[in-house]
């Protein structure tokens, strides 16, 4: 008996399937909330490398600007001054004689006023540049001259002071 009913049911079901094709696709679905897949945390550098992004600023395609050039030369002049300091410090340990011996020897050579002036300019310029631009950086640190116009204005002023004071130092 039950078998008949079951078969009959299947028959009607089949009929429904053929008559209402779309309806047969409707079936109950339970949606289970699932957290979003967690992004692998690589850190800033690794993530950008994985994405194939060039490092910012992309120096080979980015036009050199006064702002960035003055910034990198601040570091460069700092490194030159560091070089002076290291040479003087290690020289004092390594060299056998007093510095006066070497300075006197240089005086004996009579390399000429022009060469000395050029030499003094080359030696002094990193100091004057790093000195004046250092003041500019410290002004930024306390919140001064931060608009783009002021950044350029102080940049030109700093360059004038740096070249000017190095020129004065080279002839005295």
């Amino acid at each position: 008996m039950s078998a008949i009913f079951r078969l009959a049911n299947r028959q009607t079901a089949l009929k429904f399937k053929t008559n209402f094709g779309l309806l047969s696709l409707v079936r109950p679905v339970t949606l289970k909330p699932q957290p979003a897949p967690k992004e692998e945390d690589l850190g800033h550098d690794a993530r950008n490398m994985k994405l194939g992004r060039p490092q910012s600023p992309h120096l080979t395609i980015y036009a050199p600007q006064m702002t960035s050039m003055l910034s990198i030369s601040h570091r460069a002049t700092g490194m030159i001054l560091t070089f002076y300091t290291i040479v003087l410090g290690t020289g004092a340990i390594i060299l056998p004689d007093s510095i006066e011996t070497y300075l006197n020897a240089l005086e004996e050579y009579h390399v000429g006023g022009v060469v000395l002036s050029v030499g003094k300019f080359i030696l002094a310029f990193p100091l004057t540049y790093h000195y004046w631009n250092g003041i500019r950086h410290l002004a930024w640190d306390i919140g001064l001259f931060l608009s783009l116009k002021e950044v350029y204005m102080t940049g030109f002023a700093m360059l004038g002071l740096a070249y000017g004071s190095a020129a004065v130092l080279s002839v005295i």
């Binding site: 300091t85 003087l88 410090g89 290690t90 020289g91 004092a92 340990i93």
Partner: peptide, 9 residues
């Protein structure tokens, strides 16, 4: 080294 050298100097 540099600090030592400079103070020595």
């Amino acid at each position: 080294t540099t600090l030592g050298g400079l103070i020595y100097f």
